[in-house]
Design a protein around this nucleic acid. Structure first.
Length: 739
DNA sequence: GTGTCCTGTGTGC
DNA sequence: GTCAGACCCATTCGG
DNA sequence: CCGAATGGGTCTGACGCACACAGGACAC
């Protein structure tokens, strides 16, 4: 018993030093098939096979009992660990709480764990504590997760995976989490894998010997490169079996692929991908391929990982009142992550402390130099909805500028860093902004650290008028000097998140006062977003029209006071609403267009067309001119319906009709061409000059056509014939009528 | 070797 | 960016 | 009073356009 105690206490007290000592006690054994979904609440099936990994792991540390049913296991462990608790209490209170919490939680869970018998024992990957976790372990878990849709179950499977890793090889938790979220590091580090469909297909082709074109055809049918890779691999005989992949080696290899650059970088990437694919087995192949492509497609993202991590560690009751002490484990982690979105920091804390407590908010705190996930606004369908939601509270309306979100940090070292909405470091792109920010701080504040939330918008430097988003896009991104800047820009600041201390818990009114007190406008490069505080919702309409006239997309409506007016990072909160002009009567851009081609759907759209090529009609030339692709706005039933419709009665034709005007753009090249048959009503936000589409070509630009921004399907127009679709001329007029 | 064009990839919205 | 679908959870409805 | 129905909120993954950048292919 003493020996076991030593094991357990070392388990709890051991920090997460980078190099965890190999365990000397023989260690636990991880089991790849750790993932039977727990269906406790749904079905009460009992099975002697339904031992959770947690329990097995506990068995290793606790003297073995004759494992029988789950209940027995759980009881046995509970007893043992409770004995531990008394021992632990002599050590530190915190630990004691932690252990007790774990006891009650896992004990309870185990009791309810009448999970179904797992049928997937195929992998059989096991490893000893301290040894690298096999990648197979994750891959098998991904398979389970993918096969179900319930969030609770998904979270539970992830939880078990994480707990197993923590108990065997905690230093693998970080790479495991990164593999789960399919990222290579914090976004501001700017590491991208640089692999897509193309390279992956090439690599596959080299691996399996099939031609690239054959694989592309297969891919169209299968709709998923992971599934395709897996089926290729399954049909192949492995001559000799390379060493099994591990979580850490795979993650390391991902990074290596990302970092390869320069001459023949593509060859190197391809070679590394091939090596991994060759070494992979079963589910590994599928998820490796998907990881390269950047889509794991297993219904998990950051939020699910946070939820699972929250359940992977005990949540002690906190006696001392402090910020967050009353929060649930999940909301604690979410808050911590949202204000400091770096997995390394979070996992470091969790592994060091082995609890989820409010201390994590100190570990993951709002810091200049670490971009926070920006607060987002909820789309509304119109002003009525705003009125309904903000009936009594005071609110403010701000112009919604059509530019790029920018989070501007002033660090303690005096440097300025600019981050995008997705936390990419954009500082290189905006040397002019960095320069301008040097003197926007009011007197007495020049040494203050701050985080500003703003929108960067292209402007005409002569008139100071706002330019469309398309102009902003043409700015160079890398290694730009002030002299090289081609498109002038104005920063419209609208929030202040940090000013020598975090402000996100203050109401907007206060933050805004601080913003206006500490910063000075510097026309035309730095101004405060135009806004207007209102009590009467009736004023909104006029203001909206005004904003649109000023070149904006609409309005942001925000609560000013009270708890609903704090800054909620990463939340698409009800407290910020956006009213876009394209939802409003009279300002709506709606067109009638003709589907002339289709694209095979991928992923969950496999088997139906996932998108269509739409055209307008030019009565003068009697030709159809492509206007946009469309792939959203359909229900699943409609997609099925349209696929059936176009597959009937020779509506799919051998090739492009001579009177379909197509630019030849490879990315638009359809899978099949259609007979012009229907008219669809489509909505968009704007019309744009297009290098790829041919609608009204030559009218606003000698070589370019017109296309749609944010097109979505509304409905079929059964009352219209293709020749009555919107005309090229109408589209040109709509383009010219834009503010 | 150098310049130009094309393609794939990753950003922004 | 838009959008639909699935799930979860709280609330309301109906027997 | 309790289970069923309902509705709002959240999360995920389909898909859109335009652009810059990096590397590869090709011509000279």
């Amino acid at each position: 018993m003493t020996k076991v105690q030593a094991t357990i206490s070392s388990f709890w007290s051991k920090g997460s030093e980078k190099k965890a000592k190999p365990r000397t006690d023989g260690g636990g054994e991880g089991v790849a098939d750790a993932t039977e979904p727990k269906r406790a609440r749904k079905e009460n099936v009992q099975s002697s096979n339904s031992v959770e990994v947690m329990d097995r792991e506990a068995d290793v540390k606790v003297p073995k009992t004759d494992a029988g049913t789950v209940q027995d296991d759980a009881e046995a462990k509970k007893v043992e660990v409770e004995k531990e608790t008394t021992t632990e209490e002599r050590a530190t209170k915190k630990k004691a709480v932690a252990v007790r919490k774990l006891t009650s939680e896992t004990g309870e869970k185990s009791k309810n764990a009448e999970a179904e018998t797992s049928t997937d024992k195929a992998s059989g990957a096991t490893w000893k504590a301290g040894q690298p976790v096999p990648y197979q372990f994750l891959a098998v878990g991904f398979g389970k997760v993918e096969s179900i849709t319930g969030r609770l179950e998904i979270t539970d499977i992830l939880r078990r995976m994480f707990q197993t890793i923590v108990e065997t090889t905690p230093e693998d938790l970080l790479p495991a989490v990164y593999i789960c979220v399919n990222k290579l590091g914090a976004p501001q580090e700017g590491l991208e894998i640089g692999v897509g469909e193309g390279i992956l297909i090439k690599a596959l082709s080299h691996t399996c010997g099939k031609s690239v074109n054959a694989l592309k055809d297969e891919f169209r049918k299968v709709g998923d490169l992971g599934d395709l890779a897996a089926s290729m691999k399954a049909s192949q005989r492995t001559v000799f079996k390379p060493a099994p992949l591990t979580v850490r080696s795979v993650f390391k290899e991902f990074k290596a692929i990302a970092k390869s650059s320069g001459r023949s970088a593509m060859d190197e990437k391809r070679a590394r991908i091939q090596k991994l694919l060759v070494a992979s087995e079963g589910a590994e192949t599928k998820y490796l391929a998907r990881a390269f492509q950047g889509k794991l497609r297993i219904h998990i993202a950051d939020k699910s990982i946070l939820a699972a991590l929250a359940e992977s560690f005990p949540r002690p009751e906190e006696t001392v009142e402090r910020v967050g002490s009353d929060m649930s484990a999940a909301s604690l982690l979410t808050h911590a992550y949202n204000q400091h979105p770096v997995w390394d920091t979070m996992l470091n804390y969790l592994l060091n402390n082995r609890v989820v407590d409010s201390g994590i908010l100190d570990a993951c705190k709002l810091t200049t130099g670490v971009p926070i996930s920006p607060m987002l606004a909820k789309p509304t369908k119109g002003i009525d909805e705003v009125v309904e939601k903000f009936s009594d509270q005071p609110f403010t309306c701000e112009y919604k500028y059509d530019g790029e979100r920018a989070q501007i940090h002033h660090l303690a070292d005096g440097s300025i860093q600019i981050y995008s909405r997705n936390a990419e470091n954009q500082s290189e792109k905006y040397p002019d902004v960095k320069l301008a920010m040097k003197d926007v701080l009011g007197p007495d504040y020049s040494n203050s650290e701050y985080i500003l939330d703003a929108e960067v918008v292209a402007i005409n430097p002569q008139t100071n008028h706002i330019l469309p988003f398309q102009s902003l896009q043409t700015r160079a991104r890398r290694d730009v000097s002030v002299a090289e800047v081609k498109v002038a820009v104005c920063v419209f600041a609208f929030d202040l998140l940090y000013f020598d201390k975090p402000l996100i818990h203050d109401p907007l009114k206060q933050r805004r006062e601080k913003l206006r007190a500490c910063f000075v406008e510097k026309e035309p490069v730095f101004t405060f977003a135009k806004g207007c505080d209102m009590n009467d919702p009736g004023e909104i309409t006029d203001y909206l029209h005004e904003s649109v006239k000023g070149g904006c997309e609409g309005l942001m409506v925000k609560q000013l006071l009270g708890p609903a007016a704090t800054y909620e990072p990463a939340n698409r909160s009800q407290n910020w609403l956006k009213v876009k002009k394209d939802y409003l009567e009279g300002l709506t851009d709606s067109l009638d267009l003709v589907p002339i081609a289709g694209y095979y759907g991928k992923g969950k759209r496999t088997g139906v067309f996932g998108a269509f090529l739409l055209a307008c009609y030019n009565p003068e030339s009697e030709q159809y001119e492509t206007t946009c692709k469309i792939g959203t706005g359909f229900s699943e039933a409609q997609l099925t319906e349209f696929s059936e419709f176009y597959n009937e009665k020779d509506r799919i034709i051998g090739g492009r009709k001579s009177y379909y005007v197509f630019s030849g753009s490879t990315s638009l090249e359809p899978d099949v061409w259609f007979e012009e048959s229907q008219v669809w009503e489509v909505r968009c936000a704007d019309l744009t000059v297009s290098p790829a589409h041919t609608a009204a070509i030559g009218s606003v630009d000698p070589e370019k056509g017109i296309s749609l921004r944010f097109p979505r399907f509304l409905r079929i127009r059964p009352d219209r014939e293709p020749q009555n679709a919107s005309s090229s001329e109408q589209i040109m007029e709509m383009y010219l009528a834009q503010p």
